[in-house]
Amino acid sequence: MLALRVFLWFFLLAYLLPLAISAALYLSSGSGAGWRIADRSSAGLLPPAATHRPALVRVFAAQTVRWRGIFATHCWIVFKPEGAAGYTRYDYTAWGEPIRMNGFEADGRWFGHAPETVFALDGAEAAAMIPALQQAIAGYAWRERGHYRAWPGPNSNTFVSAVMGAVPGLGVVLPPTAIGKDFPWDGRWLRRTGSGTGVSLTLGGYAGITLGWVEGIELNLLGAVAGLDLRRPAIKLPGLGRFGMPGQTLETPAAPHRTAAAG
């Protein structure tokens, strides 16, 4: 009985309370403009492509549309080869062909919600990474109409997790609000984490646990993630996201432009 009481208190404080606070914040902010007319303009997070010669890779995340924004964010990938005159953006959506290329501004607001930068890499390392990302996008298994499922996946966050996971040791950690990031996109329920510093167990995306030096400790219950980052101390809460030190990779001389700003 003691163990049950401890679990119930943990579930209340780590899951239900953060989601209730997120719902209250959503209701107090109002519903905003309808999704058809919501602002999708650039948030100014990227330099003009024509004047930024180095290769570039970004992962962005923004609060998703309508009531689902209480607990979920939408993630997408942007890259630009060296010298390219424009950015290429990839989203995975519920309408039309699931994998959507350049359907929106590269750093555009997601139906009124400004994105945050989850991962950023420029220069030679970004240039070397882009072919692997392109190959992962081309080979993504869940690419047909009807494959998209908002919960537990495969959804937009599953797609980004799979593509970024194609680069061994990269260690991009999506925000705890990226519902679907733990869906087993390749059928494996037990795997090494993307950083190679831990392991992740998922029960079809409905529940699971991740333990890793870069990823920290994450407990997934019905897609909602709570956890701790020990390397860069922070707590992760469903609906509310990350609180603590930024989840960025420390810069090194070999990778002076790499950051992972959220997760």
Rank of each mutant, 00 (worst) to 15 (best):
A114F: 11
A120K: 04
Q135D: 14
E125A: 15
A132T: 15
A106R: 04
P131Y: 12
A136N: 08
G108C: 08
A138D: 15
L133A: 03
I137P: 01
I130T: 11
A138I: 08
W142D: 02
G103E: 06
E105W: 11
P115Y: 06
A106F: 05
L121S: 00
F119W: 12
Q134P: 01
R143S: 14
F119Q: 02
G103N: 07
A136M: 14
I130P: 01
A138L: 05
I130M: 07
A120V: 05
A136H: 13
A106V: 05
A128Q: 12
M129P: 00
F104M: 11
R143W: 12
G108Y: 06
D122S: 07
D107R: 05
A141F: 13
A126V: 03
P131L: 13
A126C: 10
G108V: 07
A106D: 05
A138F: 07
V118I: 10
L133M: 14
E125L: 08
I130C: 06
I137N: 02
L121H: 02
A128E: 15
A136S: 13
A114I: 05
D107M: 07
M129W: 09
E105P: 07
A120M: 06
I137D: 02
A124N: 08
L121I: 04
I137V: 13
A132D: 14
G123R: 00
E144Q: 13
R143A: 14
L133T: 02
D122I: 01
Q134N: 13
Q134G: 09
I130V: 15
D122R: 00
L121T: 00
L121G: 00
A141P: 06
T117M: 08
R109V: 09
P115F: 03
G123L: 00
G139I: 10
F119V: 07
H113C: 09
E105V: 11
A127E: 15
A106C: 09
A141I: 10
A136K: 15
A132Q: 15
D122A: 09
E116D: 10
A124H: 04
A132G: 04
L133W: 03
W110V: 02
A114P: 02
W110Q: 06
Y140F: 15
G139P: 04
F104L: 09
F119I: 13
A126Y: 02
E105C: 11
Q135Y: 08
G139V: 06
R145G: 06
R143I: 07
G112Q: 11
R145W: 08
A120Q: 08
A127S: 05
G103P: 04
H113L: 07
L121F: 02
Q134T: 07
G108T: 11
W142Y: 12
V118W: 01
G112N: 08
A120D: 03
F119Y: 15
F111D: 03
I137A: 00
W142A: 14
A128P: 02
A120C: 11
E144T: 04
Y140S: 04
A114Y: 08
G108P: 13
